[in-house]
Simulated scan of single mutants.
Amino acid sequence: MKTTRHWLNVVAVAATIAFCAASVQAQPFYEGKTVRVIHGFGAGGGFHRSGEVVTRHLTKHVPGNPTFVVESMKGAGALIAMNYVYNKSKPDGLTIGYLFANQLVREVLGGTGIQFDSTKYKWLASPSYTTAVCTTTAASGIKSIDDWRNAKEPVKFGAISRQGDLAHDIPKLLSALAGLPVKIVVGHKGGNPDMKLAAERGEIAGFCASIEATRIVWGEALDAGTAQVLIQIAENPDPMIPDVPTAKKLVSDEDWLLFAAAVANPGRMTRVFAFPPGTPDDKVQLMRKALMETFADPDFRAEAKKLKVSVNPVSGEEVERLVAQMHSLPPATIERLKELLSGE
C-alpha cells in the first residue's frame, strides 16, 4: 500500500513538473516585454509618424503582444541613432533600429562618423520603398524646372548637414549633373518640419525629401497650391505623382547611374527596421514575419492611408540584397560620387 502511494506521489510530482515546464516553454518570449524602436529624426517628422503607426499594429502580430515604444534619437542626419543601435544596444530582440538608408551611401563613400558595417545589421523589413522629390513654396517664385533653371540667383534649398543627408545630396547632384543653380543652406537640425518653417519664412525656397515625408509635412500646402513638387528622382514617374518631371530626363544615361546609386536605389529601402548584429536568428525570423503580416493588415493599411504613410513593403531578404548591391559599386562610381557630393 505504501509502495502504491509512493508511486502515485512520484507520478503526481512528475506531472506537475512537466506541466510547469510546458507552461514556461509555451510562454512567448515577448510576453510582458517592452521593445524600443529607435530612429534618428525629430518626433514631428515622417520617421516618427510611420514608426508609430507600424508599431501600433505590429504588437498584435508578435506572439506575446509586447509593448513597442518609438524613440527619437536625432542628430547627424540619423547617424547617432544608427551608431547607437549597432554598438550599444543589446542583441536580445528588445531594441529595433528604424534606420535611414541614405547613411549607407555615406558608409560606402567612406564618410566620417560611420561606426557600423551595414552588412551586419539584421535587416527586418521596410514599410515602403519611396521616391525622393524636391518641393518649393509658390511664394519663392520657383514653380517649375524652367523657373529653377532660369533663376537669376542660385535657388536656396535647406538641408540638415553636408554628409549623409538626402536634402543635401539631391540638390547637389541636380546642380552638378543637370545644371540647375543651387545654394544649399545647412543647419536645419529639426529636419523636415524645421525646413518647412524656414521655407514659409522665405529663408529658403524649399527642400528635398522622400515623397512620403513630403506628403506629411507639405500636405496642406500642396492641396492649397501654396507649394509644389518640382522634380522626382526617378527613372519612371511614381504613380502618386505621374505628371511631375523625372530626374532621368534631365541627365545623360551615364549620369543617371550616379543618381541611381546615390538616391534612387537607397530609396527602395529608405526607412528600414533592423536588429543590431548578433541578434539570434529565431528572433530575426519572428520579427520579419510579424512585420510583413502587419504591412498586409487591413487595419494598419487603413490607418496608414489616413495618416499619409505609404505602404509598399520591402522584405528583409530584399533589403539584404540591396545593401550587398550598394557595397559592390564599382570603384570609379564611388570616386565620382565622392567628388560630386563633397564641398559646399
Score class of each variant (00 low, 15 high):
2 K>P: 14
3 T>Q: 15
3 T>F: 10
15 A>Q: 05
18 A>W: 07
19 F>H: 10
22 A>E: 03
25 Q>C: 11
26 A>F: 13
27 Q>V: 12
31 E>I: 11
32 G>I: 15
35 V>R: 06
36 R>Y: 06
36 R>Q: 15
36 R>A: 14
44 G>L: 14
49 R>G: 00
50 S>Y: 09
54 V>T: 08
55 T>E: 02
63 P>C: 09
63 P>V: 05
80 I>A: 06
82 M>E: 12
82 M>L: 15
83 N>K: 03
86 Y>F: 07
86 Y>S: 00
89 S>C: 12
89 S>N: 01
94 L>Y: 10
95 T>E: 00
99 L>G: 02
105 V>P: 00
106 R>N: 05
107 E>P: 03
110 G>A: 09
114 I>A: 04
118 S>L: 11
121 Y>T: 04
128 S>C: 07
130 T>F: 04
132 A>I: 15
133 V>C: 05
135 T>A: 03
136 T>M: 00
136 T>R: 05
143 K>Y: 03
144 S>D: 06
145 I>R: 08
146 D>P: 12
154 P>V: 13
154 P>E: 13
155 V>Y: 01
156 K>Q: 06
166 L>V: 13
167 A>P: 04
170 I>C: 00
172 K>I: 04
173 L>R: 01
174 L>M: 10
176 A>I: 08
180 L>C: 05
192 N>K: 05
197 L>F: 10
197 L>I: 08
204 I>P: 02
206 G>Y: 07
208 C>K: 12
210 S>M: 06
215 R>D: 04
216 I>F: 08
217 V>G: 01
220 E>Q: 14
220 E>K: 15
229 V>R: 05
234 A>D: 14
237 P>C: 01
242 P>H: 10
245 P>Q: 07
248 K>L: 11
255 D>H: 05
256 W>R: 02
256 W>C: 01
257 L>C: 01
259 F>G: 01
260 A>K: 06
261 A>T: 09
263 V>L: 09
265 N>C: 05
270 T>P: 05
273 F>L: 14
275 F>M: 13
278 G>C: 12
279 T>F: 10
280 P>I: 15
281 D>H: 11
285 Q>L: 12
285 Q>E: 10
287 M>L: 13
288 R>P: 08
290 A>R: 09
290 A>E: 02
294 T>Q: 11
294 T>M: 11
313 P>T: 08
321 R>W: 08
330 P>A: 13
334 I>V: 13
336 R>K: 12
337 L>W: 03
337 L>Q: 06
341 L>G: 05
